[in-house]
Design a protein around this nucleic acid. Sequence first.
RNA 1: GGCCUGUUCGUCUAGCGGUUUAGGACACCGCCCUCUCAAGGCGGAGAUCACGGGUUCAAAUCCCGUACAGGCUACCA
Length: 491
Amino acid sequence: MSEAPVRVRFAPSPTGQLHIGGVRTALYNWAFARANGGTFILRIDDTDPTRSTQENIEIILRALEWAELDWDEGPLVGGPFEPYYQTKRAQVYSNALAVLIDSEHAYPCFCSAEDLASKRESNRAAGIQGYDRTCRGLSPEEARARIAAGEPHVWRLKVPLDHGPVTFHDAINGDCSFPNDVMDDFVLMRSDGTPTYNFTTVVDDADMRITHVIRGNDHLSNTPRQILVYEALGAPLPAFAHLPMINGADGKKLSKRHGATSVEQFKELGFFPDVLVNYLALLGWSLDGETTLFDRQTLCDNFSLQRINKSPATFDLAKLEWMNQRYIIELGAAAFVDALIPYLEESGLATKAEVSAHRSWFESIYPLVAERVKTMQDVCPLIAFLFSGPTVILDEQSVSKTFGKTDQACDILGAALAIIADPALNFTTEVLHDALNTIPEKMGLKVRMVFQVIRVAITGAVVSPPLFESMVLIGRDDSIARLKAAEEYCC
RNA sequence: GGCCUGUUCGUCUAGCGGUUUAGGACACCGCCCUCUCAAGGCGGAGAUCACGGGUUCAAAUCCCGUACAGGCUACCA
């Protein structure tokens, strides 16, 4: 391991949102760079003119920032190989093409897309894979004349016919070999003058001195083609590592059908970036086979290509949720409240200003809900009752399970009311617990039943955060009001 | 069709020829704790390592086939 400093890149195509597979690729590149003191480069591969949009570029940048996968070179931060948008690098590609034309590694092809499509079937039947090289034999004079006459043409790579199988070592998949005769003279430059993916990728990776190409396994079959371009260019080969794909629960390629698939969605659902990183790191890689929860530093300290496995993984939301819950439990009140603000505002429970004004009150919610939520989105529904003042909306089912189940509900509420209305009673969790605990004994009722009745009166539902803590948060006045309201309801 | 790649509990994975009656985690089930729900503790079930052949004293681990899944085969990336 004496080589040049590691330089890796994530090169998304802005044809959609940044999806799970994309972040995972970005993450592995990032982690590999950080693990090796290398450079992580972000490059926008926007050469598909019909599907790339500015909006998608922004979404991708924001998603990466949210995930805290910071890049050392690329959009926003610049770097020695600017620009980092392929659409702004036209000159680089035409220079590269000129080199290939000069060295007779590329030739013009005048076959129209329609011609090719119509010939494809018969060629295939005749055993010809891909382009049949009709224009490869054109004389330079004829080619020049037709170009001068303005005839539309693409530029194709002149694949060496006597080239043996293309072999390379993949850091994950081991030695790979592709027969040369299945490689056709693919298009480098389209008739509209824009370059194709297999060309730009190589030109840029070579130009930007990328040392390790880490990308999805769907590119494995493109690698031999790209190696041919490296060779034609006379550029040194990077190391390759092709990551296993990520599938949905049905084993099929992950798509919208499988629910949330974009980073944006996971953010909105209330997952933390650290959690998504932790989970994704484990989709195809393992720390030691035992440890599932670890932080970024641990990931960066231990990440290695050797521990990436070859088989595709299935995305499991339940495990992600569990991790997020574990994370929230470790989060602490201050960070929790910070993270909760957008959700409070969105649900209309409280504004940012109100949170600042009653910071400690909001922080005391944390221990009541931390172990009861999987995502931040779960929090507001659970605590909405804290914000409803003197009355609370009673959940119908909960009412029938409690008030409707016993004719003593009325007495229970009366007893509770009598206790907490006593101004001499300290309104604290412990005192409330001890005081209210006398009711079941006195009335000869089950503890569980008594508290469930009170719970519904206070929180509106049979499932809630701890009762006494909730009452303290609501305050004595509202607690009394709610008990009275419930009393009216069932007495 | 051709060329590639993959296949260990439902899921993520450990395993890189003998230490394995295949380990951990999520999910699942039961018990305990308990004011509900969670969380937590304890325990349980769950994988003849896709299948079939080899190689070897010995294979989940090496080789060859088959099946299934995925990718590439575009003037998409």
